[in-house]
């Protein structure tokens, strides 16, 4: 198991390095410097600014210096908000985003998982068709459409829930979490249904039933572990999607999170902020993929030996 984790960690290093390198050079070759827009900056001031941000050095030296900073966990100063570092901005935005992501994941796993398992227990009945049709709607309905529609219904028409904000009014976290989690709940429902159907047709389930175990014990003790495997492997990639989805959800509901910072940084051409956030988010995604691989391997010994020997 440790060998497996170590080999996956080793694979993650070049990926993260590639992300840093590609992002760094992409941002640098972008047309238009960050200080071009200010009208008539005195040349001396501009030079001083450029020196402060190391823009006067050769590109490759800038790159090495940036790598050095990163090694110390330093993401550099922001172009747009003078005096604030990218680290501070990320630290300010992360709690809201992490909380939103966590709730969305809970929505996805709880609602999706229960719906999928229920559907698999009585395939081709109403108990199967209704949740699965809802899941199809969830997959086809984009986050940026579902969000406004939910706001329109529950926020404006029914006036049950606040239309925006995060942690300011009771219940204002419900709509964003539902909006972000819905599509993933739909995927989880489909995956867990398919996984459960496959497991339920296997011999060891028949054995368990033949032993005279009550049906709910057959499900909880024997079927779930294998049946929910596809969901575990899905969670890693889903995390990347959740982050991207949080860009939209945070914009719709005006949540002061990382996603909104990122989109704003993109519009402001705040290069250090874009660079820092990309590196940060990418590392997070790679690590989350790693965690989901490890979890899957832990649950499924066959996968472990296959990877361990390769």
């Amino acid at each position: 198991m440790w060998k497996f984790i170590a080999s996956r960690l080793l694979q993650a290093v070049p990926v993260i390095l590639a992300v840093i390198t590609v992002t760094f050079f992409l941002v640098r070759i972008a047309p238009g410097g960050p200080f071009d827009s200010e009208k008539a900056v005195i040349p001396e001031v501009k030079a001083a600014l450029e020196a402060q941000y190391r823009l006067d050095q050769p590109l490759f030296q800038q790159y090495l210096a940036y790598l050095g900073d990163l090694a110390q966990g330093e993401l550099g100063p922001s172009f747009k908000y003078p005096g604030r570092s990218v680290n501070e901005l990320i630290a300010a935005g992360l709690p809201a985003t992490a909380e939103l992501g966590l709730y969305a994941l809970l929505v996805a796993v709880c609602i999706g998982g229960v719906a999928g398992v229920l559907a698999s227990l009585k395939p081709n009945t109403a108990q199967d068709y209704i949740p699965m049709s809802l899941a199809m709607i969830g997959i086809c309905m984009p986050t940026f459409l579902l969000g406004p529609l939910l706001v329109l219904l529950f926020g404006i028409q029914l006036e049950w829930l606040p239309v925006s904000g995060w942690g300011e009014m009771p219940g204002d976290k419900l709509l964003p979490s539902l909006t972000l989690g819905a599509a993933y709940a739909a995927y989880v429902a489909r995956l867990s249904r398919a996984g459960m159907l496959e497991v339920l047709s296997q011999d060891y389930i028949r054995t368990a039933r033949a032993k005279g175990l009550p049906e709910w014990q057959v499900i909880t003790r024997h079927a779930l572990r294998g049946g929910l495997m596809p969901v575990v492997t899905f969670l890693g990639p889903a995390f990347a999607g959740l982050l991207a989805g949080s860009f939209v959800v945070e914009t719709i509901f005006q949540i002061p999170g990382l996603g909104r910072f990122y989109v704003q940084a993109a519009f402001n051409r705040d290069y250090t902020m874009i660079l820092g956030t990309t590196v940060f988010l990418s590392t997070l995604i790679v690590l989350f993929n790693l965690a989901s691989d490890v979890l899957a391997a832990w649950l499924n010994p066959r996968l472990r030996s296959q990877f361990g020997e390769a």
Partner: peptide, 18 residues
């Protein structure tokens, strides 16, 4: 390796840069 890259973020980046 490319699979492991966070592409949604990269596309946003590409659209900003170019």
């Amino acid at each position: 390796i490319l699979y492991a890259l966070p592409f949604m973020i990269f596309i946003v980046l590409l659209m900003v840069v170019f």
